[in-house]
Amino acid sequence: MRITDYSELSNKSFQIFEYWIYSNQIKNEIEITQEMINEIQIGIDYFQLNETNPNLFDLLINKFNNQN
């Protein structure tokens, strides 16, 4: 068994990763903050998700901009 410890991600940010990996979507009820975007940008590099389609980072930025 392999365990990955990535304690730099908050629980909400990790939930975004988990949901997105399985559904390619971001839950509507999650409010995106600048801190979450920063955490997830680091996590995208860590988990090597830069070339995914749809691009998680782009989706987060769009959702963040539409919230404000």
Rank of each mutant, 00 (worst) to 15 (best):
M1D: 06
M1H: 04
R2M: 11
R2G: 10
R2N: 07
I3W: 01
T4W: 08
T4M: 04
D5H: 02
D5M: 08
Y6S: 03
Y6T: 10
S7Q: 14
E8C: 08
L9F: 00
L9Q: 01
S10K: 01
S10M: 03
S10F: 01
S10E: 01
N11F: 15
K12L: 12
K12T: 09
S13H: 01
S13V: 05
S13M: 08
S13K: 01
S13T: 11
F14E: 11
Q15V: 08
Q15F: 14
Q15M: 09
Q15R: 04
Q15D: 13
I16E: 11
I16L: 03
F17L: 08
E18F: 10
E18L: 04
Y19T: 12
W20N: 06
I21T: 15
Y22E: 09
Y22M: 12
S23D: 07
S23E: 09
N24D: 04
N24Q: 09
N24K: 10
Q25F: 05
I26L: 10
I26H: 02
K27P: 06
K27Y: 02
K27I: 05
K27M: 10
N28M: 09
N28F: 15
N28C: 11
E29W: 08
E29V: 09
I30L: 13
I30A: 09
E31L: 06
I32R: 13
I32F: 03
T33H: 00
T33P: 02
T33A: 08
Q34L: 15
E35H: 03
E35W: 00
M36N: 04
M36Q: 05
I37M: 04
I37R: 07
I37V: 12
I37H: 03
N38G: 06
N38C: 08
N38Y: 10
E39S: 11
I40V: 06
Q41H: 15
Q41T: 14
Q41W: 03
Q41L: 14
Q41R: 03
Q41F: 11
I42F: 08
I42T: 15
G43D: 01
G43R: 02
G43V: 05
I44H: 00
I44N: 00
I44D: 00
I44L: 02
D45P: 04
Y46Q: 05
Y46K: 02
Y46N: 06
Y46C: 14
F47Y: 03
Q48M: 06
Q48V: 11
L49I: 07
L49M: 12
N50W: 00
E51G: 10
E51H: 14
T52A: 02
T52I: 10
T52S: 08
N53K: 04
P54W: 07
P54F: 13
N55C: 08
L56H: 00
L56W: 00
L56T: 01
F57I: 04
F57G: 11
D58E: 09
D58T: 10
D58N: 11
L59N: 10
I61Q: 06
N62V: 12
N62F: 14
K63D: 07
K63E: 15
F64L: 13
N65E: 14
N65S: 10
N66V: 14
Q67D: 08
Q67H: 14
Q67Y: 05
N68R: 05
N68T: 04
N68Q: 02
N68H: 02
